[in-house]
C-alpha cells in the first residue's frame, strides 16, 4: 500500500483520529488520551518503527501541540503524528516506553514549552542552564534584549537622536511598556 493509504488506514484504526495532507506531508491528528496507543499501533501494526523526532509548538489559541515524526523504512514513508494537549497544566504520557529515542526530545520539549511528560524515566532540563526561568519557545516569552535595546526604527523620517516627537513605535516582539519590564521604561526621563 502507498504511504497515503497506510496513513489513511492508521487514521481509520484509531477512534477520533483524522488525516490531513499538506504540501505532500501527511499528518494524523489523534486525541491526547490515545497518544501512547497511537504511537504503539503505528510502530507495531503500520511499519512506522523509525522514530525521527518529537517536538511541540504553541498553536494560535495558546494550546500546546506535540508532534512526532515517524518513518517507515524500505520503502521510506513519513508520517507526522500530532496531538493537542488541552490539559492544564499541560501534560502528556511519555513516549519513551514506545520509542526509547524520545527521551531527550521530550526533555527539550518539556523545558522549552513547559510540558510535563508523565512517566519519563529521567526528566530534567537538557539544553537550558540551571536556574533558567521561563519557557523560551512559548509565544508569551519576551526576549529581554529587544525590550532593553532602543529600536532604531522607532524614529519617524525627519527625526534624529532623542528628538522623538510622537509616541514611540514598538518593535515586533516587545510588549507595551506597562505589561512587561520596568514600570517606567525611560527611567523618569521626559
Amino acid at each position: 500500500m502507498t504511504g497515503h493509504e497506510r496513513a489513511g488506514a492508521f487514521a481509520a484504526a484509531l477512534p477520533g483520529a483524522s488525516l490531513t495532507s499538506s504540501f505532500g506531508q501527511l499528518t494524523v491528528d489523534v486525541p491526547a488520551d490515545a497518544w501512547l496507543d497511537a504511537l504503539r499501533r503505528a510502530r507495531d501494526d503500520f511499519r512506522l518503527g523509525y522514530f525521527d523526532w518529537l517536538s511541540a509548538y504553541e498553536d494560535t489559541d495558546s494550546v500546546l501541540v506535540v508532534v512526532c515524526h515517524l518513518v517507515a523504512l524500505e520503502p521510506v514513508e513519513h508520517l507526522l503524528v500530532r496531538t493537542r494537549v488541552d490539559s492544564e497544566p499541560p501534560s502528556l504520557p511519555s513516549a519513551v516506553s514506545v520509542f526509547r529515542g524520545a527521551d531527550w526530545h521530550e526533555r527539550e520539549a518539556a523545558e522549552m514549552f513547559g510540558l510535563t511528560f508523565t512517566g519519563h524515566p529521567a526528566p530534567g532540563p537538557l539544553l537550558l542552564p540551571a536556574g533558567f526561568e521561563g519557557h523560551p519557545l512559548r509565544k508569551g516569552f519576551v526576549l529581554a534584549a529587544r525590550v532593553a535595546r532602543p529600536w532604531p526604527g522607532a524614529k519617524e523620517p525627519g527625526e534624529s537622536g532623542s528628538a522623538v516627537r510622537r509616541r514611540r513605535a514598538l518593535p515586533p516582539g516587545v510588549p507595551a511598556p506597562g505589561r512587561w519590564g520596568p514600570a517606567d521604561p525611560d527611567g523618569g526621563q521626559p
Binding site: 537550558l128 521561563g134 523560551p136 534584549a145
Partner: peptide
C-alpha cells in the same frame, strides 16, 4: 542571535 535567550552577545 543578539536577541536570543541563550546567546552571549
Amino acid at each position: 542571535y543578539w536577541d536570543s535567550y541563550s546567546v552571549t552577545k
